[in-house]
Amino acid sequence: MGQAIAFYTLAAFILGFAVLVVTTKDTVHSVLFLVLDFLFVAALYVLLDAPFLAVIQVLVYAGGIVVLYLFVVMLVNLKRPPEAHHDPHRRTKLGLFLAVAVLLELGAIAVYQTTRPVLSVPGAPMPVTGNTEQVGWLLYTSYLIPFEIASMLLLVAMIGAIVLAKREL
């Protein structure tokens, strides 16, 4: 019961703020709604027994990535609103229609899924308990190479961002 209330409240906030993110005209307000949305997603992770991921979500998304967005929005000091130029060939209504169609399709799949039993995929037994320990154990054993590749990706992205943003090297 308590879990259901928590889930529906969080879901309402997540979807509501997500709608505000894509509909708000002022970009800075949009970024703020994005932060709130991420914080509620983090709360949802806590509900799902993933406290480590929840904290990482706040730390990386809310504390890092969105600050970057806010910086760019403030640096890109717009003299005219970006939506002013309207391309007549662009069919916005069609986009909405397609999105709703995909939503119906995904919803149908999700509901169909309930009629089938959930396959249980027990993970390999781990010598550690606790959420952080388990995630760390998996990262440093089974998923060591993807982990290293992710670090390489971040390094490349860092260098790329510097090269792109610097006026002349």
């Binding site: 993933a50 480590f52 991921l53 990482i56 979500q57 990386v60 998304y61 890092g64 990535i65 970057l68 967005y69 760019v72 959930v118 249980s120 995929v121 027990p122 993970g123 781990m126 959420n131 388990q134 995630v135 998996l138 990262l139 089974s142 998923y143 993807p146 992710a150 990706l153 971040l154 490349v156 992205a157 860092m158 790329g160 961002a161 510097i162 090269v163 792109l164 943003a165």
Partner: peptide
Amino acid sequence: QLQNAVGQVFALFVIAVAAAEAAVGLG
């Protein structure tokens, strides 16, 4: 649901990719 932390590991990778994407894209 499956009592298996692998999903969270993948979510971590998604967050890492999102960070890289944001840095390069905003650049």
